[in-house]
Amino acid sequence: MVAQNIAFGVIAAAMVISAVRVVTAKNVVRAALYLIIVLAGVAAQYILLAAEFTAIVQVLIYIGAIIVLFLFGIMLTRAPIGQEGDLDNDQRWLAGLVALLLFGVLAYVLNDAFNGAQIRLNVPQTTAQVGDSIFGAYLLPFEVVSVLLLAALVGAIVLARRD
């Protein structure tokens, strides 16, 4: 248990630092690279929670596909690659205040509700179980999501097409 807690602490620290760098970096490409660290950290947390299938999907979809999309987006919009200071707008302080306020509320509520609750991973959740419930109990949401993906595909093509 100690090893897991140490692993959690190290990964979480790396994630928080990287996340802050994502939203403060002065360079767009660098922000995207920090985002990779955060996403990989999320995958590692899934492994700690014994959710291996979700972790693999996280790596494949987020790091493999979404980051690439972001990099394409950065390139196609010809954002400057080198240093550039002007990526933030003039309401940074307001934004920081709102974020801190939200964090205060969330931290208070979570501490109030789940203080001392332990996660016991004695019953493993296997990939087979995930598959069974997606294609069993949650078949309808699954089908709806597939239709949504199709709609997004068509929508993205229509939007980005030159005509």
Partner: peptide, 20 residues
């Protein structure tokens, strides 16, 4: 493992995202 650790990590990421 404490449930709260994960939840607080989620809260930090969420608020960082809101700031962004």
């Amino acid at each position: 493992m404490m449930l709260n650790n994960f939840l607080l990590l989620g809260a930090v990421l969420f608020c960082t995202g809101v700031y962004g």
